[in-house]
Amino acid sequence: MSVPLHFAVKTRLVGLLEELGEGAALPPERTLAKEFGVSRWTMRQAIRELIADGRLRARQGQGTFVATPKLIQPLALVSYTEALRAQGQKPGRELVAFEEIEADELLSEQLGIAVGDPVHRLERVLLADGQPIGLETTYMSVARFPTLRDVLKPEGSLYRCLTDELGVRFGEGEELVETVIATPREADLLKATQSLPMLLLHRTSRDTDGRPIEAVRSLYRGDRVGFRATLRP
C-alpha cells in the first residue's frame, strides 16, 4: 500500500521539529516545500495535520512554531489545579458566567432534583501558563450548595472549595469523552479556529453516600490537551 505524499512529508517534518526544539519558528511554507521537493498544497496539508496533532502552533500574524508537549490530564476525580502543577504548568481560570438557572429534564436527572429547581451554572475558561486550554461549565443544585457563591473564588479550584470549605467527599463519577467542533463562541473564548478539533467531556460525580454533586461539561483544545486513564481487569 502506498503512503500518501503529505503523510510522508509529515513524518519528515516531525524529525525537523525535534531538531528545532520547543518554541522555535518553522521555516516558511514556500521554503519547506522547495526543500522537500513537494507542492505548497502538500506541505500545507502536512502542517495543518501537525497543528491538529498539537505538534505545531500557529500564531496569527507571527507564523508557525514548534509546540510544547500536550498536557495530559487523568480521567479521574482529581483537581485540575493539582494535575497541571504536577506537570510544571501554572493553572488559572477566567470567569465567564456564574448564574442561577432552572433545571431542565437532563439536569433534573443528573442532579437528583425536580425540573424547575434552581441550579448554579458556573462557566470558566481554563488556563495553563496564562493560555486558554479548556472551557468548563459546571451545574450544581442550589438547594444542596446554597453558599457556593459566597465561598468560591471564581479563579480558584472548585474541587478544593467543595472539599475544604463545604466538606464534600467525592466518591465516584462517570465520564464520556467525544470529539466535536467548537461553536464560534467557544472558539473565540479558547482563542482557536473552528476547524481545530476539540475534546468534549461530560462528567457527573457523586459523594461517598451516592448523592449527586455536579454535572460538568468540559471542552478542551485537542492541540493542547490529552487524557490518560488507568485500566484494570
Rank of each mutant, 00 (worst) to 15 (best):
G23W: 00
R228W: 03
I51T: 13
A24C: 02
V119P: 04
R221N: 03
L95V: 02
L176W: 07
K34Y: 02
E172I: 05
K191M: 12
L50H: 13
I47P: 03
V216Q: 06
F36C: 02
E186V: 05
P74V: 05
G21L: 02
R221Q: 03
S39K: 00
M1I: 10
V142N: 00
K10D: 00
V66K: 05
L162T: 12
R232V: 15
T138G: 05
D129W: 02
R228Q: 12
T230F: 15
D188N: 07
A86D: 03
L106K: 11
K70Q: 12
H202Y: 15
S218Q: 04
A33N: 08
F145I: 01
A187N: 07
E136R: 09
I101D: 04
H202D: 05
A83V: 06
L50K: 10
P27R: 08
S39P: 01
K70T: 08
E105T: 12
R93T: 07
R12D: 14
G112T: 01
A83R: 03
F65H: 10
I101V: 13
Q73E: 08
E102A: 12
S141M: 04
R224W: 10
L20Y: 07
E35C: 00
D117H: 12
A229M: 06
S195L: 05
M1Y: 08
F227Y: 01
A52T: 14
L231Y: 07
V115L: 08
K90D: 13
